[in-house]
Structure formats: structure tokens, C-alpha cells
Write a protein that binds this DNA or RNA. Structure first.
Length: 151
DNA sequence: GCCAACGTTGGC
DNA sequence: GCCAACGTTGGC
């Protein structure tokens, strides 16, 4: 089982939105490296839900991969902000993964807090200049973040 | 294939 | 709103 971190701007889609809906197709990823991570995901994998571009920046909960990656339909929708004129139905360029709600943390684990935690120094999220919206997380890092959220 | 110009992300 | 650190585009 692999573990991941997925970013979302809470103004667009928050942990509360996911909690309310139960599951959500994670679409709109338009970066090849991030897309390749989506393709590596398997049902049962866990994901940290990260709020970016927010008043409170950090990890706010846990979700679960429910389905293998499949074509992201927004790439074909001319009215969508995620429309990609270069994507063809017979050769989709972008994928989405169905994510299910697992848990909303009792408190946010902030970016600042993670930066100050030496045991998280290897976290891909904290590497300079990293802007990927989908990132792998090592099991030990994942466990520690969940633990921090509950203490 | 190179690389300048441009666009985007996301913390501050 | 600013801007560093990217990724992408397109002319050559």
C-alpha cells in the first residue's frame, strides 16, 4: 500500500466538502509528473488532504483511493477550466482518481509545524520549489503526521 | 535540441 | 500583490 499527499485549495474544494460528499473524483491535475503519481495509485492507498493557498495551510485529514486512475472527463469539456484542446478521446492525456473520505483531523498540521519537525525533513512537500499537487509520502512520515494531528 | 518568453503555483 | 521556482511553448 502506498501513501500520498494531495493538495487542494479549500476555496475550491475542502476537507469539509469531501466529508459531506463522501467521495470525489480528483480531477484537474494538469502536470505530467503529478498525473504519473495518480496512475501509480491503487485502491486502498491512503492520501493526506492538504489545504494550499489558504488562511490555514497544512494537512487537514485522510482519504482513501477507491478506484484506479481513469480518463479525466474535464479535459474534453470545452466549458471546463480544465479543458485541453490537445487531448483526444482515443488517447486521453489526463487522469483522475476517485478519492473517498476517511477522516477529518481534530486539528490542522500546519506547513510551519512540519517544517520544524526533523523527522519530516525528507518530505517531498517540503523540498524547495516543489509545486506538484500530488506527491508520494513515506509510511513513517504519513504515520507521524496522523499522530501529530491527534496530540 | 536549445532556450527565451511566458504562464502557473503557492507561500508570504 | 509580490515573486521564486518551477513547467510549457514555440521559434529557430
Amino acid at each position: 500500500m502506498n501513501m500520498w499527499l494531495l493538495k487542494s485549495e479549500p476555496d475550491v474544494f475542502s476537507i469539509d466538502d469531501l466529508k459531506k460528499k463522501g467521495k470525489e473524483p480528483w480531477n484537474g491535475v494538469r502536470n505530467y509528473q503529478a498525473r504519473n503519481y495518480l496512475r501509480d495509485m491503487r485502491p486502498g492507498d491512503l492520501g493526506l488532504f492538504y489545504h494550499s493557498n489558504a488562511e490555514q495551510i497544512g494537512v487537514v485529514g485522510v482519504m482513501e483511493v477507491l478506484k484506479l486512475a481513469e480518463a479525466d472527463p474535464t479535459q474534453f469539456d470545452a466549458r471546463s477550466e480544465y479543458f485541453d484542446a490537445g487531448a483526444k478521446k482515443e488517447a486521453p492525456r489526463w487522469d483522475q482518481v476517485l478519492m473517498g473520505f476517511k477522516e477529518k483531523f481534530p486539528r490542522i498540521v500546519t506547513l510551519e509545524e512540519m517544517r520544524g519537525e526533523t523527522r519530516l525533513s525528507g518530505l517531498a512537500l517540503l523540498r524547495k520549489g516543489n509545486r506538484l499537487s500530488v506527491l508520494p509520502v513515506a509510511p513513517a512520515e504519513f504515520k507521524l503526521i496522523v499522530k501529530l494531528a491527534h496530540q
